[in-house]
Each structure stands twice: as C-alpha cells, then as structure tokens.
Write a protein that binds this DNA or RNA. Structure first.
Lengths: 361, 361
DNA sequence: CTGAAAGCGCTTACAG
DNA sequence: CTGAAAGCGCTTACAG
C-alpha cells in the first residue's frame, strides 16, 4: 500500500534550458501580459513556443511565495446547499473563472461537530489561505463578526448590505420588486391588490411596501390598509420560521391568516407575497377554500425559487437574477484587487429584479 | 486610488527569534503532530507558547513548495446551483473541513462564453492548482473525459459509478430504493402497486425495477406487467428532458401517460415514481382527474428534492442522504491521500437510501 | 538536543 | 537585449 508517484511537473527552468535562455527571460516573457521589454521578438516567440510544447504552467505556490496574488476568492455562505444561495455560489464561480480565479466555498453552519457557527473560523482560515478577496452571502440572521471580516479582508463584497459603512455590497432593488408585482397584477386586470409582508420592522420588507404603494398610486388604485398584511401583527399566531435547516416545518397557518385578512376581509383579487414559500402556502389555502388561482385571485411570489416551477399552478414570481448579482460582485472585486478601494459612490450596487410569468398571475 | 497595505504576516522566523531558537527547531516542533524527536520538552513548550501568542500559522504556499500537500480538493459538478447536487457540494465541504481541507468548486457547464463544457479544462486547472484529489459528481450525461481525469488525478472519488474499472465511487443503492418504496406502500394498504421508470435501458432504472420486483414478491403481491411503466415505450410521446438548464419545461405529458397506463388501465392504487419531478406531475394529473392522493392512489417519489415539501400534498419520497454520501466520499479520499490506492474490494461504496414520509403516501 | 545551510520554483532588482 | 544572483517562507538532511 505505497503512495503513488506524483506526475512529474515541467518547471520554468526546463523551458529555459530547452529554449536556450536564462530563467529570468522566460519569466519575463511569460509573465506580464507580453510586455516584452526584455527579450527580442524572436527570443520571445521561441520561448512561447517551447512553453506551449512542454505544456508549462507556472507553479502557483512559487508565484505566491514571491508575492503574486493567489487567484482565489473565498465564498462565505451559511449553507451552500440551500437553493436560495446555491445559484449565487455557482455564478460567482463562473464569473471568477472568467478572470482566471477560483472560489473556495466556506459553509458557516453545518459543521456542528466543530461549533455552531464557523463564520469567524473561516474568516481567519481564508486569510491564512491568502485569498485575494471574500464574497459574503451569509444572511444577516446568522452569526459572524462582519467587521472583523472587513478588517482582515479589505477586499470583501457582500450580497445584501451588511449595515457597515463603507463596505461594498450588491443588493436587490426591493422597491422595484414591489412595483413589478403590482404592475403585473394590474395589467392582468386585478383591481384590489393586496400585499403580504413578513414584518414591517425589516428594512427590506419596508422597501417592498414602498414600491407597492408607489405603483398602486401610479396605477390609480390608491391604498387601503385592509390590503396590507403585516406578519408581525400575527406574531403570536405564526410560529417563527428559522429557515436554517435543510428541511423545516413551514408554518402553513400563514396561508390561513393571509387569505382571511386579504381575501375574505379585504376583498383582494391579487396578492403580492413576500416570497415563494408564502406564495405556495397561500395558493394551497386558496385552493382549499375553492378559490381559483389565478381566476379568482392571482398570486405573485418573490425569489424565483426552484419550487416555483413545481407548485400547482406554477408560480409567477419576481426573480433576483443571481447571475447578474454574481457578475456585479465579481466585477467589484476585480476592481478592488487591481486598484484598491472603490470610490465612495461605487460601493453599493442595486440589481433590478425581473418578472417571471408562469401561471399563478 | 492606491492599493492597500497588506496585513503583515508573522513568519516562522519571527517565532524562532522570539523563542530564541533556530527556525529548524520551530518547524520540527510545530510540524509533525508533536513527535518532538528534536526539541526538549521545555523548548517545545516554549515554542508552542510563542507561536500561539504571535498567532503564527505557516504559509501554505511555502509548505507546498517544499512538497507538502495542498489540503485542497477539487469538486467537479455540472452546476453547483442545482439543488440535486448543491447539498452534496455543501456536505463535501463540511466533511473536508473536518480534516482541515478546503474544496475548490468547478462548474463544468455554465460558462458558455468559454466553451460549452469546461470539464477537461477544470481537470487540468486542478492539477495545476495542486489539489490533493478530486470529487467528481458530474452526471454521466454531461461531457468530459473521465479517464483523463483519473489518469491525472489518481485520487479521484466519483459520485455514482462512472463505469471505469478500478475507480473509487459512492453510489446510492437503487435496488434498496425500489424495495423501500414498495414496502411502504404495502404497509399503507396498497394492493396494486405500479412503478414508473424513465427507461429500462439505464442500469440504475433497471436496478430500481429489480428492487421493486423483489419486494413485491416478498409482500406476496406478485408481478404484473400492466403495473410497470417504461418511459421508453412512449419515447415519441414524451419529449426529452435535458435537465441541464436552470429552468426547463418539464414534459407534463408524462403525468398523463403514467396515469393512463398505471391507474386507468392497470388499476394501480400506489405508484413508485422514478423521481420527485415525475411524482409531482403524476400527482398534478391525478388531481386533475379527481383522484385523491393518497386516498385513492398513493405516490412515492425519489430524491427528496427540495420541492418535496412544497407540492400538494407534500411528497413521501426516498432520500439519497447526501450527507452520508459526502462522508463516505471524503473518507475514501483521505485514505487514498494518506496511504495510496485502496484495495480492490474497498473502491465501491453503496449508500442506503432512506424513506421520508410526508403526506402523498 | 540544536544550528547552519541547501533548496522547493518562481520573480525581480542588479550587472553586464 | 540577456545572465547570475538573491530571496519569498518553509522543511529537511547534514553537521556539531
């Protein structure tokens, strides 16, 4: 049971020997994007040819030891398996790869054998690994010292504003999400459009309400408090949804409360749901009462979660465009890695969400 | 717009200086799991103390240059966002982390700007990065030269048998999955249990059928060809589902064909579906015909996909235990990294799937 | 039990 | 335009 022979690597020295030049020249020619200030065009061409023939690629460890960047980015997520973040994780990698970089995934929860939360551990570990920067998409309700993250990794880009002044972040325009949903329902002929919110004390939910109100006015529908459902008013009736587990018992009672308040009492013919999960239980409850979707009441979700395709009827929802978010996050990162801190005004990027029409509205 | 000052790192040399010993001793003491064959117990203790106080952690690049392992594993997946693989990706990282290792995610599709398929590119890139091994969970229907992968990375562990002799792989016991589903339906009182299969020409589907038949006999239900639906018999009627896109149009006609064949013609009161997607469209079709689930016909899925919780009624299904699979994959990997190739008999691991009861059966 | 030195593969001043 | 040399931070024979 002996170890295998490692595959022999071709070194820069080998290229130099074959090309008949010194290592320094090879390094210069292959390095800095061909600014051949050193070798003659002829020599450079020869070196390039030999390097290609020998299939040479410089050892990243040796380069890093000399101070080169690692071309590695850390990705902090609570749980990479969660479909709500997994597409962001995927697209961060795809975008990083376009710049020749790789992503190192770090799940901050899940390793309960070690500790309930590995955020801070990973922050130090990534520093040790010498990453060029860190993407942080750990939702605010999870632990972790974000100030320390930013201190140790100045090149950090957050998904969603962490509330720390001066940080770089990419967020979804929740106000626009509210407007898009209302506009679509209005165009589908809805006259009394209600909105359900998890809790108005949260800034993101408040932004959605703001967008909802603005678009209601723009559509000439005015506003009616009977059409605004605030989950916090029912706190005692609605168990807390911790959203941390791989599977969890979603409080289906939400569907009952929302349909009671908005449809039975408020007479709504359209509902803007706070997310696809709520939309899903709302639709189930409507069906249970013999109310047709979208015939009697149309429902628009938010997230474009994987499940949107599979509930019945398939859910019309607002997508957050994780590919676009990843693109912007990587772009910010690359700017920081190359040129240092971004100007104040360029540290916050707002992504425009997108309406995805299926059948529920 | 100038670059930031990098955070000053503490080197082994600093530790040596403070502790008043030479670097070699420090290296020896901090290195090999405290087999202090070099320093006296006193010196060792002093060095350890200083190292801790200075918060020293050795530069991985320098170590690697001297031949140490990278503590990095590559993870090849078609698309890390896909919920079918994202949990495996997450648990591979969690398990690797327990051994002090990190995972480097590689999406083999998605970067169409580069090429339709980046499998082979990533295989070379991971070699270049010097990973200690590679986990490959790219589904068989995607491209990529797996033989070359195994040649360049002898330490490769596959999720599902790639059909290359001698490789290490962890698979789900599909026969057991078939048995579990039948047993549960039988215990719920079903008398005529049908099975739907995507296509019998696929070995994994054939294994499920084998398990189904075995358990039907064990339950004393015998077998009836009218209760076996083979998707390949309806190839012309069922459009190909490519499963590659983030969203795709699932052929809902499958639901019609399956319900026609198994329920209308076969008189089934229980259905074993090939996966949760099929189960979902089958249930939708049953409802459309006024057939109650699970009252009239019970349905069991396979995968325990995220959507299982959200369809109506929530789906009873067979889970593949991605955490267990990841645990075994990492264990195999660690053995190979430490001691070289595994004995012939230990290269294939079968994971026992698990019945997850919700409401559809 | 401990130190001085060589070297992993690369890059980058410094000479010529 | 090119070469020889030093050095990044560590480990590991080789001396003492």
């Amino acid at each position: 049971m002996k170890k295998r022979d490692p595959i022999k690597k071709v070194r820069l020295l080998d290229v130099a020997r074959v090309a008949g030049v010194s290592p320094g020249v090879v390094s210069q020619v292959l390095g800095k994007g061909r600014s051949n200030s050193r070798a003659s065009a002829q020599t450079a061409a020869r070196i390039l040819k030999v390097a290609r023939e020998l299939n040479f690629s410089p050892d990243p460890s040796a380069r890093r030891l000399r101070g080169a960047r690692s071309n590695l980015y850390g990705v902090l997520v609570a749980s990479a398996g969660d479909p709500l973040v997994s597409f962001l994780v995927e697209h961060l990698d795809i975008e990083a790869m376009k710049g020749g970089c790789h992503t190192l995934i770090c799940n901050t929860i899940g390793n309960t054998a070690l500790a309930p939360d590995q955020f801070d551990y990973h922050v130090r570990e990534l520093l040790h690994q010498g990453v060029d920067g860190v993407f942080c998409a750990v939702h605010e309700w999870f632990g972790g010292n974000r100030r320390e993250l930013v201190r140790l990794h100045p090149n950090t880009v957050f998904y969603d504003d962490p509330g720390i002044p001066g940080t770089c972040h990419v967020s979804i325009d929740r106000e626009a999400a509210g407007r898009l949903a209302v506009r679509h329902l209005f165009e589908r002929g809805c006259k009394r459009i209600g909105i359900a919110l998890r809790g108005l004390s949260r800034p993101k939910q408040a932004a959605r309400l703001k967008g909802y109100r603005a678009e209601m006015s723009a559509c000439g529908l005015g506003t009616d408090n009977a059409l605004v459902f605030n989950g916090e008013d029912f706190r005692s009736a609605i168990p807390v949804c911790d959203e941390r587990g791989e599977r969890w018992d979603f409080p289906c009672v939400i569907g009952i409360r929302v349909v009671d308040a908005l449809v039975r009492d408020g007479g709504a013919d359209g509902i803007v749901a706070p997310d696809d999960f709520w939309a899903s239980v709302i639709i189930r409850q409507l069906r249970a009462r013999g109310i047709r979707v979208p015939g009697d009441v149309a429902v628009v979700g938010y997230l474009n979660h994987y499940l949107s395709d599979w509930i019945d009827p398939p859910l019309t929802t607002i997508g957050r465009c994780p590919d676009e978010a990843a693109r912007r996050m990587v772009r910010m990162m690359e700017q920081m890695v190359k040129a240092g801190p971004l100007p104040e005004g360029e540290r916050a990027v707002l992504i425009q969400p997108k309406l995805i029409v299926r059948q529920s509205a």
